[in-house]
Design a protein around this nucleic acid. Structure first.
Ligand SMILES: [Zn+2]
Ligand SMILES: [Zn+2]
Ligand SMILES: [Zn+2]
Ligand SMILES: [Zn+2]
Lengths: 166, 166
DNA sequence: CAATCATATGTAATATTATAACATTCTCTT
DNA sequence: AAGAGAATGTTATAATATTACATATGATTG
């Protein structure tokens, strides 16, 4: 019954490649834009990319403290502000947490699928949804600044495991 | 008074009617469901409905304290939990704030248009968006528990005022 | 070079948002 | 009247986020 479903991209993959690509892209983007991906900002981005889960600001702080004794909340929040501004990460509003952006390069709108079991966050372009949304918003005479589309539930991988636990 | 042309549904309307209807509906729903819309919960709902803006928990607390000296954060958060559970209000994730639900009766999915200028929150059924979204999510093999679709920007009313200031 | 400016970071304090834990009271049923 | 479950009172604390001011750093320029 579920054989035709698109599998979650995170089920089995070379995550080191994710990280490498994300950091390479980030470095490239920052050079192009003439903004500084400083060591702190780079490290925070790297920590965020350790997984596809959304990570909380104070968890980042805990992770960075051993490396940077001076780190304080402001250290983290400033880095996060920068990374968000540059579109390198997303803030997950419904979790007060942060996740790497997989498509910083192409700047499209994002829909986030957030798994309540494994906590991975999958970002999807969802062009049809975005089109319908644009139409709806247009109809309302509303001018968009920012969209947050966050869907909570159970991802395909976790559902498969639940139905077929190894 | 109420004479200029403004398209937003909240621009000119009998807000007392909004409140009356919301409270009536809430009372009715709670009776039907056999749950208790206690005085505290009722008051919190009433305060939330004072406007179409999203209101913060601690602002509610400030507003309710003169009436209930014993009120503490837990007082408010418990009432909010109840109201959300019953679908009588929405939590606006991107604001950490709460807004009355205009359609508690029919339980459909909601899209929130949040004006950054006047701070009113407009709830729209957006059935086309929801249909496209359901399709997208189905394709991803994802099982939905909860959706948060929050669009920030400038509402039609504020845009009209900006283009045509008195 | 010195002066200036913009950017980034250090540091301390505090503000804001939310929950935990346990006691007490209320309401309904028996 | 007793007991159970729901709701509230009360205190404390956790978790999230911002402000303000000081310092450093590098680029620009008079
Ligand atoms: Zn990966
Ligand atoms: Zn999962
Ligand atoms: Zn109204
Ligand atoms: Zn507005």
């Amino acid at each position: 019954m579920t054989s035709s479903l698109t599998p979650s991209p995170f089920s089995e993959h070379d995550h080191k490649k994710c990280v490498r690509e994300a950091l390479d892209t980030a470095e490239h983007i920052c050079v192009i834009r003439g903004v500084q991906l400083t060591p702190i900002r780079h490290k925070v981005l790297e920590l965020i990319w350790e997984s596809h889960k959304a990570i909380k600001a104070y968890d980042l702080l805990d992770r960075i403290k051993p490396l940077m004794d001076a780190a304080k909340p402001a250290t983290i929040y400033r880095a996060l502000d920068f990374l968000i501004e540059q579109g390198l990460i997303h803030r997950v509003e419904s979790l007060n947490a942060f996740v790497g952006c997989r498509c910083s390069a192409h700047q499209h709108e994002q829909l986030l699928l957030i798994c309540n079991r494994c906590h991975d966050v999958e970002e999807r372009p969802a062009t049809k949804v975005m089109r319908a949304l644009a139409q709806e918003i247009e109809q309302a005479g509303f001018i968009v600044h920012r969209k947050a589309i966050e869907i909570h539930g159970i991802c395909a991988k976790c559902e498969a495991q639940a139905g077929n636990p190894n």
